[in-house]
Amino acid sequence: MLKLRVNGTEVSYDGDPSVPLLWVLRDELGLTGTKFGCGAALCGACTVHLDGQATRSCTLQVSDAAGHAITTIEGLHPSGDHPVQKAWREANVPQCGYCQAGQIMSAAALLAQNPHPKDEEIHEAMSGNICRCGCYKRIEQAVRVAATGV
């Protein structure tokens, strides 16, 4: 039995400890805000925070997540009003919206470590997150807005 701390709550999982954290979050715990996109840490849709670090949950064995604080999009802010979430809404970033949880988690981790990133730093931090709808211009704009305060 694995014990996990997800969004501040302790939960347990009694299945295969070698499956990726992503599927435990989504299929076992019902936290479907974290998305599947590639299963190979190539697209960033599955990004969560592990002790505050942006982490691709699709390639992280669930057993390796035990003992760490796991934060998903659902737990980023109690009312969904994290500055990055607010900035995303102000800039009308999403089209289909599917990748946006991962984008927001990457951006929030970036700003936690680097509150005033330069454009190149934004690009670097966000380059692992694919948006097939092509909302990149607004993503960049929203990160800047979040950095300067909403």
Binding site: W23, R26, D27, G30, L31, T32, G33, T34, K35, F36, T72, I73, E74, L76, G80, Q85, W88, R89, N92, P94, G97, Y98, Q100, A101, I104
Partner: peptide
């Protein structure tokens, strides 16, 4: 007018096909 799903999308509560749930479901 902002899209009606904007808040749900930014908080992880929007439901896509891959997110649908039923009790007792298999994968």
């Amino acid at each position: 007018v902002q899209i009606v799903d904007l808040h749900d999308i930014t908080t992880g509560h929007a439901t896509y096909g891959i997110d649908a749930k039923l009790p007792g479901m298999k994968f």
